[in-house]
Design a protein around this nucleic acid. Structure first.
Lengths: 240, 240
DNA sequence: ATCAATATTATTTTCGAAAATAAATATATT
DNA sequence: AATATATTTATTTTCGAAAATAATATTGAT
């Protein structure tokens, strides 16, 4: 019996606090394990192991896996069980292409509809991100473990005023999948100059309510990051 | 205790034949009931009723509901249970707008990649559709109960060679949601002239591998159908 | 020794009862 | 009578054991 080296404690607390059901906790735990690469692409996910790792019953685990499947992070075959979804360069490029269509669309709608609350929330989100990216929290250059969630937060704040729930959930699903490739490349080098400037420019164009410019900038941003990741992934021969 | 008037027999057989798990059967049964409007928007879905209607255990029902939720056909609140998703004109227009972006994209890719098998499959699908739409099966003008699945099949055949699984699953999800509004309007008047011609034109442009024209035609098609449905829905005051 | 048929083992899938939680009702207190 | 507290009832959520199915190993026949 293999072990997955998952540490459920940080997520389980949310269940103890009553805000999440157990199935949801299990979902969050597993999702994080897959995104972070603790579970390898293609790996079999057998209930026995997952139960002992996470602690919940088989039925609860099963519900979490069902949800993960709809995120595209897990695949299943009838009466064959569940597997971590595979990764490929082809898929990564497809995801990027779709993001380049949906992100600017969501952003434009958000810009058109965003109210004062949205605006201040965005200012806050960008402030936190730029602080971390400039490493002003601490003078150490070690990549902040918080960066992924703060970065995610900023991009979510940008589009959060978009009224189309469908669009937002598609966007979120693609964002999640991209995160997986980012972790694979393990390039949380937030001290690079380009992304910092790009985030700032997107932020400013959005506050200026310049949808056209903001759309162009976010598309460029996605393409740059994608190209950067692609190089690393191909060099490291992590995906084919 | 309410009853839903669901007839599970037609879908259950698929489970008996071994091709589907029970949870998947339950999923298909419930999905169909929601799409067809047998279950009303906003309606509470309590396990007891669903169990007696469909016959499977609560755990199996629960798994089906989890999947339905990711299709956007069902919503849930923690420890409050499951509900049929609401409908609204606003959402319908959003769905149409997204379809107008994703369908042409998927179609273009399909045209670029489609092989001979795709082509002959498409010819067949269009043949079946046009046969039903012209009512040549029977001279009665009663709307064929098969039309929805044949129509769905044709649109699926168009895009089936698109290599992006993500794009296809988003497209499918939007298609499903649109179906709901179509059933609501209950306008399976397939004898109308416009949609028949439109299907034919899309079909021809696709076979000609004219991605640009095919894209334009499918967008127009979606907008026309949408406008048609919108009128009916608003007139009947089915959605606000 | 090879292949087919059968038995064993390992996993997934399903079930329905138990625990946990929320809603509704009743009781007590001011 | 109105509000707060306790009790009951109704539902959802969780669990782990039983049934179903697939994978593996064993046996027997050619």
């Amino acid at each position: 019996m293999q072990t997955f080296k998952i540490d459920p404690s940080e997520f389980k607390s949310q269940h103890e606090n009553g805000s999440l059901s157990r199935a949801e906790s299990a979902y969050v735990i597993l999702q994080s394990a897959i995104l972070k690469g603790l579970l390898n692409p293609g790996q079999k996910l057998d209930f026995e192991t997952l139960q002992t790792e996470i602690g919940y019953s088989s039925g609860t685990i099963r519900e979490a896996l069902t949800q993960l499947k709809s995120d595209g992070l897990v695949k299943s075959e009838v009466r064959r069980g569940y597997f971590v979804a595979e990764v490929s360069l082809k898929e990564f490029l497809e995801i990027t292409e779709l993001r380049c269509i949906l992100e600017p669309l969501a952003l434009s709608k958000s810009i058109a509809e965003g109210d004062d609350e949205w605006e201040s929330n965005l200012v806050l989100a960008h402030h936190k991100l730029s602080k971390i990216e400039r490493g002003s929290d601490k003078s150490t250059s070690l990549p902040s473990y918080e960066w992924p969630s703060v970065h995610k937060n900023f991009h979510e704040a940008l589009v959060s005023a978009c009224p189309s729930k469908n669009l937002l959930s598609m966007r979120e699903s693609l964002f999640k999948q991209s995160e997986r490739y980012r972790f694979l490349a393990a390039t949380m080098r937030t001290h690079k100059r380009d992304p910092i400037i790009e985030h700032l420019e997107i932020f400013q164009a959005t506050l200026d309510r310049n949808a056209e410019l903001a759309s162009k900038l976010i598309t460029d941003h996605l393409n740059h990051t994608s190209e950067h990741l692609r190089e690393i992934l191909v060099n490291k021969q992590l995906i084919l």
